[in-house]
Nucleic acid binder design. Structure first.
Lengths: 338, 338
DNA sequence: TTCTACGTTTCAAACGTTTGAAATAAATCA
DNA sequence: TGATTTATTTCAAACGTTTGAAACGTAGAA
């Protein structure tokens, strides 16, 4: 039917020789419109493939039925999986989703926030970049009464806000507890970068699991690394080779770190490898390809995080009352065996 | 400054006691506007954090400066990486990007296409779902004069369209050629699902490399599998255990398949494992975690594919002349050693 | 016959922006 | 002084949609 120019209400009205408002109301099933008219309009609309212009609609109803997501990186399965949870639910309620990657760069994050502001999104779900300590670009949303959900990463600098986080403390507790109950007396903790609050939350889980099981804490069983392989190798050397009584189990901040660690030990032919057990945060899909997978993974359930985030966001969008308390949702972690 | 209601041109105009059009023109640097006025307007706009309403703008200029991307799955690094190429370039030219996942489901793909149609995107980049054989939902774009680039997956049913694909034939040729030149007499090919055209393109590359190197073709060195582990294992068994003269090298359709295969052989303690070399399509980032990575990867350069797709799309958007021939871009593959 | 009520349709304003044409005021020229 | 130019601002329509108010014709009631 090669129309070349989008079909509008106006065109339908002309073809049917009725007014634009009748067409509009017919398509929206207004009770005042005659049934036969509705029929004619709808048929013509279908025939000409009428699609309402979203911009015109948004402008009129002052609502975009679009929510924004800003996250650091789509290559990270943690975030990709969280999108799944968000999208499913959002689309079900008629909302569209715009995804932006900040690549952990504050400037990109600010640009994205401004872009989304222009697009007049109804709300924002954001996993802040590593170095977001200034929240001006996000306060703008709040000033307009647009709700923001912080998720996945803890904005420790920003106290009063809605948060959806995985219960990372609990995850580490479970893993440590599980290993001790399995008979391990010397469980090590390999933490992530010290600036990340999760590193410390997880450490607390580790410590509390030790205490609850009456296992003494040994500082030489704790090391930290960033995501750089060299640092990880150094940390592992420290943990496993600097003591005549090395750990028999390890809980690692992230599987990306854990796998580097395991590969290091294996390629160095660490003699007690077979008696050592490993658990890391992530449950990454490609574990299936590893010849020697870790004992278990701490599953953070990112889909569920995403779903909690969007649920809370839509609730806030609907009520529109600023009055609500700031919510903090914690998503359970669970241990998954391999 | 808690405005609660978005700042519009109207508000700026009121505050400054000038007309809306002066404000608009001042912000857009019209030469007819007095320099001092521009100064005042811009300052006020900055002070009140004015952000133009994209919907109103789109409606007015009949252009959204937004392009759509439909792809099967963000969990697949091939596609995630391609987005990187698209986004970078698009944003540079002032375009926004809406990403939708079809999860390889035709119905979801159709829904997404309709959503994007409503959003009045200026163009579409799509990696079609596995079972897209009907193109009605995409023809709608063409009818409106909106360009579509098919990328990553070959829409073999749809002949006249713009395509950006990786030169998969060449990738397989390079890998096979490399292995033969390395001394392998018996190189096997493990293809993907037979409905996927790439499976056959790659097979051609394999065959031609054999021929060009005067290496005889042996049908028992070729097997096929889908992405299911059981099938892969069966195929591998057929290739490696059903012959007294098994292959010494293997080119696999995808690394996801290859890693299953290698794990199978290794866990079955295949005796000639150390003398056998493997190459697959992908170059997945987590290869660094494998204790025994394959010899090399065929890198399909998805970023470059994305960039080629967006470049072509923006060119088509700009010229708006329907007259151009349909373009087909082939992106080179390269061998990456591990 | 006139009035009221009802069912249906149309009018007109609004959402926020752009932009050519028209208006205004000031400055220059004859 | 009056006419013309110039610099600057404003007017008004348009983009496509929604929606309360107004208008219409027709049927039933008084």
């Amino acid at each position: 039917m090669s129309t070349k120019t989008p079909v509008t209400l106006k065109l339908l009205a002309q073809k049917l020789k009725i007014s634009i408002s009748t067409v509009s109301k017919a398509l929206n099933d207004y009770p005042t419109i005659n049934a036969y008219t509705k029929e004619r309009v709808k048929q013509m609309a279908a025939e000409l493939h009428f699609t309402p212009n979203k911009s015109a609609l948004n402008l009129q109803i002052q609502k975009s039925y679009t929510i924004g997501i800003i996250l650091p990186d789509l290559m990270d399965h943690y975030f990709t999986r969280s999108i799944f949870g968000i999208e499913q639910y959002a689309r079900q309620y008629g909302y569209n989703v715009i995804i932006g990657q900040s690549y952990d760069d504050l400037k990109k994050e600010v640009d994205l926030a401004n872009m989304l502001l222009k697009s007049r999104i109804d709300g924002l779900i954001i996993a802040i970049s590593k170095n977001t300590q200034n929240f001006d670009h996000l306060d703008m949303f709040e000033n307009l009464g647009l709700p923001i959900i912080y998720y996945g990463r803890n904005p420790s600098f920003n106290l009063s806000c809605h948060k959806v986080l995985s219960n990372t403390y609990q995850g580490c507790y479970k893993a440590t507890d599980f290993l001790i109950k399995r008979g391990h007396k010397r469980v090590a903790y390999l933490g992530g970068p010290k600036m990340i609050s999760f590193t410390h939350d997880r450490f607390k889980g580790y410590i509390n699991a030790l205490n609850d099981n009456h296992t003494p804490f040994d500082a030489s069983l704790v090391a930290y690394t960033d995501f750089d392989k060299t640092n990880t190798n150094a940390a592992i050397k420290e943990l496993f080779y600097n003591s005549e009584n090395p750990p028999t189990a390890l809980v690692a901040f992230k599987e990306q770190i854990l796998f580097d660690a395991m590969k290091y030990l294996r390629s160095n032919k660490y003699e007690k490898m077979d008696q050592t057990e490993f658990i890391g945060f992530g449950n990454m899909p490609f574990i299936r390809y590893l010849d020697n997978p870790p004992l278990a993974s701490i599953e953070e359930n990112p889909e569920s995080m995403g779903e909690n985030a969007i649920k809370l966001l839509l609730k806030l969008i609907d009520q529109k009352t600023e009055a609500t308390e700031y919510q903090e949702v914690m998503v359970d972690c669970e241990l998954v065996m391999h």
